[in-house]
Design a protein around this nucleic acid. Structure first.
Lengths: 117, 117
DNA sequence: TTTACATATGAACAATTGCTCATATGTTCA
DNA sequence: TGAACATATGAGCAATTGTTCATATGTAAA
């Protein structure tokens, strides 16, 4: 800390603050990132993601496997679609969902490791 | 699909369902995991985490850097503490917070990669 | 073309969340 | 001891979220 720096408090000076801010993601990235993680912050959506790790499933089968009614599942699939975590394929009356992102397994694995420590 | 399996719908049989369920985390893990990810799903907490990546900071400096008042920051630090994402060290009147988990950088990095694709 | 099936969607409601305000706790220094 | 400072916490409120209900859309089979 040089003489002419103004100390804000504790260890931080105005110069430090300026330098630090340069290292942070911009506000828009922070917003997008929090939206992204919010999607993982719900047990129904997590159950759907763990199911889809095993393959492609139609909405009805998903609702059976996660033990939620079809409407609730459709709403959650919409969230997952908007977060670009799942993709879908229509086949006749049915819609088959699958994972759309190779990061999902990684993220889930890290999370599991954390909570089991 | 063998003859005596009951088809639930789409491709899924009762046997498939049973086999699949064995692969899933138990309900308690799912709950813990969603709580864990929920913590990342808020922009204020993310800003705090990105700050703490750069080192150890007292509460007052954190509140300056993330541009939130002290009370809001204290509440969010409590969440981060409960999720075991940060640790703290008391020194006189001040409390210094830092990251408590080597997974945090990984998770943030994967998230950033996803939203920037 | 009617009927049944598969999925999606909008509105409503309860539950949860994040912030603010007021205040409590704990520490240092005069 | 008392004043100033740093942090934490509980209550209250507005905003957001997840589920359900009712219904719409789209496809296929009769």
């Amino acid at each position: 800390m040089t003489e002419n720096e103004i100390k804000i408090s504790c260890n931080l000076t105005e110069n430090d603050a300026g330098e630090l801010r340069k290292k942070f993601p911009i506000e828009e990235e922070i917003q997008d990132l929090s939206e992204f993680f919010k999607v993982f912050g719900d047990s129904t959506r997590l159950r759907i993601l763990f199911l889809l790790k095993e393959g492609e499933f139609c909405v009805h089968d998903i609702s059976i496997m996660v033990d939620m009614n079809q409407t609730a599942v459709s709403h959650q699939l919409k969230s997952l679609r908007q977060a670009r975590l799942v993709k879908y394929r229509k086949d006749g009356k049915q819609v088959f969902y699958s994972l759309n992102d190779e990061h999902i397994n990684e993220i889930l694995a890290i999370g599991l490791r954390h909570i089991n420590e």
